[in-house]
Design a protein around this nucleic acid. Sequence first.
DNA 1: CGTAATCTGGACAGATCTGTCTGAAGGGGT
DNA 2: ACCCCTTCAGACAGATCTGTCCAGATTACG
Lengths: 221, 221
Amino acid sequence: MVTARSTTKPSARERLLAAANELFYAEGVQSVGIDRVIEHAGVAKASLYNTFGGKEQLIRAYLDHRHAGVTARLVRAVEGRATPREQMLAVFESQGAQFGKPAFHGCAFIRASAETSPGSLVAEAADNYRAWLRELFARLADEAGAADPEALARQLQLLYDGATVAAAMDHDPSVAVASRAAAAALIAAATGDFGWAPPPPAPAAAAGPGAPDPLPATALG
Amino acid sequence: MVTARSTTKPSARERLLAAANELFYAEGVQSVGIDRVIEHAGVAKASLYNTFGGKEQLIRAYLDHRHAGVTARLVRAVEGRATPREQMLAVFESQGAQFGKPAFHGCAFIRASAETSPGSLVAEAADNYRAWLRELFARLADEAGAADPEALARQLQLLYDGATVAAAMDHDPSVAVASRAAAAALIAAATGDFGWAPPPPAPAAAAGPGAPDPLPATALG
DNA sequence: CGTAATCTGGACAGATCTGTCTGAAGGGGT
DNA sequence: ACCCCTTCAGACAGATCTGTCCAGATTACG
């Protein structure tokens, strides 16, 4: 009822969402006008207002669509790893793989939030996205045996946010290696799987026979 | 010839810069129109165009003004500490102290860049700012004896960027404690220096009447 | 085939924004 | 007093944007 058959021409709603995804993400939700969206989608203006109700709702639908896409990609990346620690790193690797793509323009939620006033539908969508990612990090941090899973989750989200911002603003995909290395160091510090003890000047060798595998913090490049 | 005495009435240029700083930072450089800026500054529209040439140049001047302010604040914070490690942490503490202020709305350069197309004067100002901060981190990392100062500097900048984004989007000043702790862990991992005392004074009092944690009604818990 | 829903193309209104221009007021230096 | 420069107040043009509306074309489906 809400979607058309895949064999026929995509419905006006789907074409509008696809056009909004391209234009809003590439140029910003405020800079792109309604006329350009409907022209790029090949639909009439009335279809947009009949389907979504207005520009703000279209932006919200665009962000929700992106939320679903990122969620699916990260879930897929996490499912491919065995241990919670590797799953956390897989999140950063999946993120880092986006940096090199030509269509990468940073985090859609950060960008859209910077363009709109707080309390809008945009902020709501951004809150949903951020809460989902934080809960993913918190669950993995808990499974990894972190002393304070919430604290580690928050630290990892700081890194995640900073990585998108830096990669977009500096046009530098190599941010991925820095963020992954930093994530590995933070995970190590929070789970104590290699030498992290405040007072003693213990050297690096803390990985005993029963300890989890020590990993090179400089993998991925 | 370009500035007036501080005892007399501020010049049109200064009043315009002050108004731009308030309005652009609080509501975004695109959302705020020229008319609101000149009304808030109490100057004529012709004065704006005679002084700056156009809106884009005013935005650029606003960002340069902010760049100078942040630079001065961070330099002051760094000068108050003795060791390079403490100086790096002082950067995060100075940043974290901003999170609780009611006028805090995230990083002006990130916000402005999200609102404008790349290659503009805004991107230029943002590049200058980011390069300055990165060199500060790199210098301190080198003095701290990091094995790879550039790598540590980049990691710290990721944290710095992520902290502003998270503090602004989540309306949560307690991000400051997470970013400082993460910075300390990254510094320790990169320098092998785990020098620690009891937890130093908290950078920001998280007590804010209007900043509760948002409780997002997210699916997929 | 016929009906009902959907989509289309475009005109239109109302608002807003940037930038220009005019004409006058004010203030400091010589 | 005179001159020069800055500033003020606001009208105005030109463009753009959101949202509404309408009559005709198209499509789905019984």
